[in-house]
Nucleic acid binder design. Structure first.
Lengths: 244, 244
DNA sequence: CGCTCATTTGACGCATGTCAACGCGCGTGG
DNA sequence: CCACGCGCGTTGACATGCGTCAAATGAGCG
């Protein structure tokens, strides 16, 4: 579907083209809006960064100096209340953006779940470049609109769904996304731990655990191990997720 | 602060200029990014619409044919679950946008709280126009990023705050916004009813009511009447809102 | 002045959070 | 290679905050 990635362009000097040519997420990331020429301009301001498992990529309240594009690994975005209560705002999968939502400062922290690689763009320079790359600006607007729609779905989950419905929704969403990415087996890999899931779903680790057990006992899922879920009854799962 | 609104331009034929010139929200709306010339292009695709109190402007799942800019009145954005449970995603105040967040369809319904006026833009034509009006595209990206940050703050509220903290946060936010808009009295007008507040805060009308009473008894607010709150202890309110 | 609808107040039960113990898998070191 | 220990996940027991149901109060309007 993106077979032109390996075309040879011998006449051009391509400072970092190798970096993007080999990119695993080029087809899904924001960059997919750009042709090779435009991509080169974008690549001219990028730095590739790696973080260890658990590392903080940026912190809530920091000056938003960079925008990131995740190329490998998983990231959690979290907000923390004074007394330590934590809400996970979202999980970022390869190809996703970090640092788009700001109000003059990062509004949440970003932490690596496992080892992570990402492309780092100086925010100001990227915003300047946006004026010269209209397709990229359009793409970012699309991404922002999608993230907004996701955020609103999550508000419905947090405000009005029971823990059972929350867990089912969570699994259902991950499954749908995996299918959309071409996966064929009815299974879900969970890169994050139970604590992260609980903090994402606005509940507790114990309730998440009990709910997994209940879904298993009811024959909707099987737990190959704690981080791999096999879906046995996709329709049943969806019905629970939708509150039917 | 926007004193140039009445300048006379006799040589130009201005099909709908009067509409924008008189606009109450021109300084805050997305249009503020545009000069008069650009504004005219935008105005060429706009239709002014009015809705009665309670009317539905668009429905969750509808084809997103329009994007709106609220010029007068208040709107609630709501998502509803199969069994009738409702979550209000946000309240829109004059100058705000409707219909930005979509996934191929409107992801929530928009309903008028009281009589409403808005500017309606055919979505496709607006998106086309965006390519010719880069400042508008930039502005929309900014708006989307802001709304995303707000949505994330709301996730924290729904997932991790107690009802007391939710109500305090709600009042505190409205108060801050009113101050930002130049209000000097320490009061808040609530255009929406208790049911809407409850559905916004992920709780029930009874709990909202009890919480108002508690805040009153604790000397933090006074209720001039059900829809007008006087703030007596702003700092105390903020501390509760932040979970201190 | 009385009706209606929104809000407030009251009583009660349950779902879910809290606290606590247990199990299991994995990595480490002997 | 095995034993141990640690961290994560699971299960259990219990308490309580909040949702549910029900009734009373109050404000707005004809």
């Amino acid at each position: 579907m993106q077979g032109s990635a390996q075309t040879i362009s011998p006449l051009r000097i391509v400072p970092r083209a190798g970096l993007c040519d080999a990119c695993q997420v080029r087809g899904v990331a924001a960059c997919s809006a750009l042709d090779n020429n435009e991509l080169q301009r974008l690549a001219s301001i990028v730095t590739e960064k790696k973080y260890d498992s658990g590392a903080t990529i940026f912190e809530q309240g920091d000056e938003p100096a960079y925008i990131f594009n995740l190329t490998s690994g998983h990231v959690r975005l979290a907000k923390t209340l004074a007394n330590g209560r934590r809400q996970i705002i979202g999980f970022v999968y390869p190809g996703g953006m970090l640092g788009l939502a700001t109000h003059g400062a990062y509004v949440c922290s970003a932490e690596a779940i496992g080892p992570v690689k990402l492309c780092r763009f100086p925010r100001e320079r990227l915003l300047d470049l946006l004026e010269e790359l209209p397709p990229l600006k359009t793409r970012l607007l699309d991404i922002a609109a999608d993230e907004l729609a996701d955020a609103q779905e999550q508000m419905l989950l947090l405000g009005r769904k029971t823990p059972l419905e929350r867990v089912a929704s969570f699994l259902w969403r991950l499954y749908q996304e995996a299918v959309r990415c071409g996966q064929t087996e009815p299974s879900i890999d969970l890169p994050m731990g139970r604590t992260d899931i609980a903090d994402y779903l606005g509940t507790t680790i114990e309730t998440v655990s009990r709910t997994f057990t209940r879904l298993r006992n009811d024959g909707l899922i099987r737990l190959e191990h704690a981080n791999k879920v096999i879906i046995l009854d996709a329709q049943g799962l969806e019905e629970i997720a939708e509150g039917l």
